[in-house]
Write a protein that binds this DNA or RNA. Structure first.
Lengths: 118, 118
DNA sequence: TGAATGTGCAACCCCAAGGTTGCGCGACGC
DNA sequence: GCGTCGCGCAACCTTGGGGTTGCACATTCA
């Protein structure tokens, strides 16, 4: 149902806020594909904890899952991350724009202080 | 003491995970400069809650504060956000690279299934 | 068929994070 | 000098998120 970009960004930011989830994404992007049980081996937490994290990452669109027999393989999915990266870059650019405007304005005011009504 | 980039990213992501803080940043970038009390007027939370959020944003390097008489003005600071945006874009690019590699590998294997030892 | 493996679901625990109220103090304006 | 305005600090409450254990259900393989 084509989630709005703002929602994607919201979910992605919430998902990336947790260090364990970022670590999971690292492991996934390195191995290409892995199950919850496998991933739990490389982390100091239980399989269920990993499964919960994967559910969050899935809801955020950062990973996708494929059932293979009795196991579930997860893989990284770049789109949501790219969307968020662009959102963030645009935001930073906007801030820069606004700050530049304010700086010019302040300089103009400074000029006026020295040469009013010129 | 020049915080490491990884730490900056960590703090920024944690800070941006909260919707109220993102809203605060919006208000700040729009007004250019504002105090905790002023900002609290535009939000459904108390001044102290806003002050706590501003402290988090400050620790993440997303805002800076200037004392003006008895009040404290906050303003947006783009560097940390830009650093994080770049980190995220690089991560997305890395995922794309890896996925492309895997895809090529899978296609090569598919070829071998049809024309082994060619 | 039966043991072993990989999951999912549910109940539960714990603590940090977001929020509030109350108060004391420095800075302004009259 | 005195009210008031803006802040900071501290104590406190409550919720949700991260974590765990236990168990039931599929799938694989001997």
């Amino acid at each position: 149902m084509a989630e709005r970009a703002a929602d994607v960004v919201n979910d992605v930011l919430a998902a990336l806020a947790d260090p364990t989830r970022r670590h999971l994404l690292d492991l996934l992007s390195a191995s290409g594909q892995a199950s919850a049980t496998t991933l739990a081996d490389g982390l100091p937490v239980s399989r269920q904890a990993v499964a919960k994290h994967l559910a969050v990452l899935d809801a955020a669109g950062l990973v996708e899952s494929v059932k293979v027999g009795r196991e579930v393989r997860y893989a990284v999915r770049p789109e949501a991350l790219e969307t968020t990266a662009r959102w963030m870059a645009a935001l930073a650019a906007d801030w820069d724009r606004r700050l530049a405007r304010i700086k010019r304005f302040a300089e103009a005011a400074e000029q006026d202080r020295h040469h009013p009504k010129e």
